[in-house]
Structures are given as structure tokens and as C-alpha cells.
Design a protein around this nucleic acid. Structure first.
Lengths: 150, 150
DNA sequence: AGTATATGGTCAACCTACTTGACCATCAGG
DNA sequence: CCTGATGGTCAAGTAGGTTGACCATATACT
């Protein structure tokens, strides 16, 4: 029992360390590609806006914050030229927030940075272990929202 | 290349989702065991204080914040009865922050909550995959500090 | 149709965790 | 001893979030 708990803590600590490292690497990689003044929270917003845009309320639910906070975040993205608010087709109350071309470029930069980080893992672990990770992790929290958690 | 990037994103997203889920489960598990009013950041502080205590400056470095912020966090832990400041043996400037008995109880609660979460993973993945995870993850960021990262 | 209620969004005020800057006490090296 | 570096706190400012009030539009119910 004591051993089991300490094993669980070791696994948990390693996971959180890797997650922290990944977040930092993506953030730095994005900044290094010229997209500055962005925080990780913006990245999580991008993942929701990317496909077809989203409403402020959708975004708030995705990020786990109030819609007021989400609205402020959108303000910031709009001010910096990464997103824009358009009228919502089929609901005059709502507004559809979509990425600008600059927003898409930033999304691609984040993907490149993530790929770099994952390549670094591959060099340490080797291909088979990396594939095992790729197979295991998505099964743990299947539909899990990707958002800041602490 | 496009495939590689999107694979990397899928792996990254899964990892962040698992990390977020783990953080949430530990937090809720600790609260469910009667330790309320604690944020995840406090947990990260506990992991540093646990062995033999630490100075405020040590703690600040561990958490990646200023020593003033660390000091405020210690104030809070002291006020809630989880830690206490003692004179530092061998350095009259410094003060050693150590866990109280309540602090140790909370640490054990966090370990139990983490063990519960990991057990849930085991039920989804099966023992072999879980062991593979336990073997792989610590190799990615060997000495990585466990701290909030976004 | 007509009213009532729910929903999307914003404005304003407040809260909290963190920062920067100044400062004091103590340590360590000449 | 001085002198600079280090551990720690106090005070004030900032950033990102919250709660609460409010308007416009959509949806449901007679």
C-alpha cells in the first residue's frame, strides 16, 4: 500500500513534469517564431477556434472559465490581430469568433513547436516507446478538454 | 510533415488532457478527505517541504515564482495550520518552513488521491501499458521540477 | 400573435495571486 | 572589522480572473 502510493506519486510527478516541460517548450517555440505576447491559455483557445470558429460561450466552456473572462481573452486576440468577431449565421445574438490568417500562422507555429518537443522525446525513448505513449495516453481521458488545470 | 505535426499535436493534447485530469482528481480527492481551501499550487509546495522542510527561497525556486510570492503562500499554509516557520539551524537570517502533523496528513491524502487516479488508468490501460508509462515518462524530463506551468 | 423565460454577450466593480521595488538583518570574504 | 551577497519581509502596483447587472435576441407556452 505504501509502495503503491509512492509508485503512483512517482508516475504522477513524472507526468506533470513532462506536461510542464511540453507547455514551456511550445510556448517558447511559438515565441521564437515571432508570435509574442501570447500565453499558454491563448493556445488552448486556438485549439477550440481552429476548426470553424466558436462563440464566446463555447470558448468559455472549453477553457473552464466564465464567459466574461473568455470575452476578455477574445478582446486580446482581436487586438493583437489573431482573431476577429463576425456575425453569427442563424443567431443574431451570438458572434462567431474565427482565426485570422495570422491566427492560423500562429497555430501552425505551435504545431511545429509541439512536433519538435515530441521529436526530442523520441530521441530519448526510441520509436517503439514513443508509439506506445501515442497509443496509451489518448485512451486515458478520451474526450478530455485540453485546458489549463491549475 | 503535416502528418508528423498533427501526430505530435494529438500526443501533446492527450498528455495535457491527462495532466489536467490528474490535477483535478488529486485536488478533488484531497478536498473530499477534508482538506479544503487548498489549491494545486499548495500541493507543489508540499512536495518540496515534505522531506526535511525548506527555506522560502528554496520554495520560490521550486515553484518558479518570486520569493515574495512564496512567502505569501507560506503565510497561507501557516494560517491554515499546514506548516510552521522555525528558526534555521546554522543561519539566523533564514527560517525553515516545515509541515505540521496536519500538513503530513494532507500529503498522505494527496498520495491516496493520486493512487486512486492511477488505479483508474490501470483499469483502462491494463497493467502492462501502465508499467510502460511508469518506465517511459520519468526518462523524458529526468530531474524536472513538478510545478504549475501555465 | 403575445407573453414569459432562457440564452449570448457586454459593461462595471471587485478579488486574488502574483509582480516589482525598497528595505532590514545576517552571513561570508577581503 | 568593512563590504558585498543573501534570506526574508513590507508595501504598492498589475493582470487575469470573478460576481452581478444589464440589454438584445431566441425559444417555449398558452
Amino acid at each position: 500500500m505504501l509502495v503503491q502510493n509512492s509508485e503512483a506519486m512517482a508516475l504522477s510527478a513524472a507526468l506533470l513534469a513532462v506536461a510542464g516541460d511540453l507547455t514551456r517548450r511550445i510556448h517558447e517555440g511559438v515565441a521564437a517564431r515571432g508570435f509574442e505576447g501570447l500565453r499558454p491559455a491563448h493556445g488552448f483557445a486556438f485549439t477550440r477556434l481552429a476548426p470553424d470558429g466558436a462563440t464566446v460561450t463555447d470558448l468559455a466552456a472549453h477553457l473552464g472559465v466564465t464567459k466574461q473572462a473568455a470575452s476578455q481573452l477574445v478582446d486580446e486576440l482581436v487586438r493583437k490581430g489573431y482573431a476577429e468577431r463576425r456575425p453569427h449565421p442563424g443567431d443574431a445574438r451570438a458572434r462567431l469568433v474565427v482565426l485570422t490568417e495570422e491566427g492560423w500562422a500562429c497555430t501552425r507555429a505551435a504545431e511545429e513547436a509541439a512536433a519538435e518537443a515530441v521529436r526530442a522525446w523520441g530521441e530519448v525513448l526510441g520509436e517503439p516507446e514513443l508509439r506506445a505513449l501515442r497509443a496509451s495516453l489518448p485512451r486515458i481521458v478520451p474526450g478530455g478538454p485540453i485546458r489549463p488545470a491549475w
